[in-house]
């Protein structure tokens, strides 16, 4: 592709890429700063703030909680989202459009509206500040990504494969286990990664639903920034970037293996 569009276009593309990536990348050097303030570029390098981050139990707890919540949310939304996609694939016409619209709902509705609604609901059921509350909220957000991802995989699946398996005597569950699931696995795994990342960097719902002992990493970052703006925040952000990149890399790997 190089040279295809001429120098002008390539420069423009490079500028756009820099515009998108640089602000995110800038946080990384800030995490390795020696000074007590975030200043770019850092004047001296050190791992000082990494020690602070790892030594502070509240940061460690937040990181572990984030991973825990994201894992649960990913697992739940994969099961529910795959089931939903299978169901939607059987619908036709208006019913299908309605079901799809319903499932895309949480993505379209402004998150703050969702947060207020869920907060009211969680308060009346005593779920504010609980892990379960966060998991349920994040599952809601992640579900559409799984359902859509799996839906795409299902759309590419030859429906006669299921008929063939049933004709050979397989029960519906066996057909799913031995034929459908192995063939839609790329969509399911891709959906799982999406769900994990969605939960992992979710902040609006989490701020509403977190409690003193149940806090995810983004909530902890937000709290920290409100009090003081030290490079430990950059360390937390760097950890998040690394995990998100790892997840994206994993999903590419799954897709490559499936192809």
């Amino acid at each position: 592709m190089t040279g295809r569009g001429g120098i002008g276009l390539n420069l423009f593309a490079a500028a756009m890429a820099a515009f998108l990536v640089l602000p995110i990348a800038a946080v990384v050097p800030a995490a390795f700063s020696q000074s007590s303030f975030i200043r770019l570029p850092p004047e001296a390098w050190s791992l000082r703030w990494w020690h602070v981050f790892l030594a502070d139990p509240s940061w460690r707890r937040a990181l572990v909680k984030s991973i825990e919540v994201a894992t649960w949310a990913a697992a739940l939304s994969v099961v529910a989202g795959t089931a939903a996609a299978l169901g939607i694939a059987r619908l036709r016409g208006t019913a299908r459009r309605l079901a799809l619209a319903l499932f895309v709902g949480p993505v379209v509705v402004p998150v703050i509206v969702l947060a207020v609604a869920l907060y009211a609901l969680a308060r009346s059921t005593g779920m504010v500040g609980t892990t379960a509350g966060l998991v349920i909220a994040h599952t809601m957000l992640a579900l559409p990504y799984v359902a859509l991802n799996v839906g795409v995989s299902l759309g590419m699946l030859d429906p006669r494969l299921g008929l063939a398996a049933a004709g050979l005597g397989a029960s519906p569950w066996r057909v799913f286990r031995t034929v459908t699931l192995p063939l839609i696995r790329p969509g399911v795994l891709g959906g799982a990664v999406f769900a994990f990342v969605t939960s992992f960097d979710e902040v609006v719902l989490s701020i509403f639903l977190a409690g003193p002992t149940v806090k995810t990493l983004p909530v902890r970052i937000w709290e920290e920034i409100r009090i003081e703006y030290t490079p430990v925040v950059a360390v937390a952000a760097t950890v998040m970037i690394a995990l998100a990149l790892a997840a994206a890399g994993a999903s590419r790997l799954f897709r490559r293996r499936a192809a």
Partner: peptide
């Protein structure tokens, strides 16, 4: 699945 049929599909529908 209870009929004990062998079906050969138009484009084979192999797994």
């Amino acid at each position: 699945r209870h009929r004990n049929i062998g079906m050969v599909f138009q484009n084979y529908a192999l797994f």
